[in-house]
Design a protein around this nucleic acid. Sequence first.
DNA 1: AACAAATAGATGTATATACACTTAAATTAA
DNA 2: TTAATTTAAGTGTATATACATCTATTTGTT
Lengths: 160, 160
Amino acid sequence: MYVYTYICIVKLEQAIQSTKFKNEVHKATLNVLYTAWWLKTLMSKELKEFGLTHEQYNVLRILKGKHPEQMCVKDIGCRMIEKNSNVPRIIDRLELKKLVKRNDSEFDKRETVITLTQSGIAVLEATTHKVNELMKDEVVMNEKDATSLNMLLEKLRASE
Amino acid sequence: MYVYTYICIVKLEQAIQSTKFKNEVHKATLNVLYTAWWLKTLMSKELKEFGLTHEQYNVLRILKGKHPEQMCVKDIGCRMIEKNSNVPRIIDRLELKKLVKRNDSEFDKRETVITLTQSGIAVLEATTHKVNELMKDEVVMNEKDATSLNMLLEKLRASE
DNA sequence: AACAAATAGATGTATATACACTTAAATTAA
DNA sequence: TTAATTTAAGTGTATATACATCTATTTGTT
């Protein structure tokens, strides 16, 4: 009996139906953009089950990092992956769903401080569990390769 | 006389002010998402000068790839980096700016075929020139590293 | 040929991004 | 201490994403 193992690496060429890259660096930039889209889409599929968007989930995770401490809107913004996210509006949706709570800051009256609710913690934990399972299945990568990838990405952004 | 060369690699930890990564693979996924945002933001700065968004530019480049052939909306969509892009609406804005032209397909009346206008070609060429210059300055990466990066990203998406 | 299913594009809605602007409060300078 | 500047959050607008639905064709099946 023979067992055939097909290891199908989907190349960027197939994904965006193009073969005209100026050079490997050009291809790499498109590859990063495409992979980011791929990751977001993958995660969103799981998040949708919990009525969360990718960005709402990101805010919840940031709040969890400091919980039970409160965080002001600005500090949440600084930790967002996409720096132009409009945090007050993402908070709006989370507050409507009773996953976070807004309070005026006593320390600085310009600030609004945000806390996770019990419900927010519960939803976040359940979601994180499912997302981690998904990632384990779909993102097939060993620690050594991941370390190389991290190094290369940080090298690419060297001019930052 | 001493010359100090500071090579500052901005780590993800600084960018999103977090050090709590489950493992290198987890960090790599966040790193891909952050780098994609970084690249988009960088490019958008240049594109804004030409009144184009990242996605509008992407559509123009795709059309250029086949020019002077026409392309239908669906074929443009297949080549987009972000597959959920709403191509008809991106075409709407490009059409308003007279950079592309819509025509009914003779071959299949359900299809709309799109062509670059002379103005579209001119704008695209000027933009591409500026964007390439910018990339050369900001994305500091040699071909060998870029090849490794491409390999790793495709490995990461292996389950696709 | 007639009808069912599939496909292409357009359109509607909720959410997000990108960015400018407003308001209130805090900080700094005169 | 008042006035100017800066900062935090919220709000407005255009564009985009994600996804569902609608309409007009085309294709496939009987």
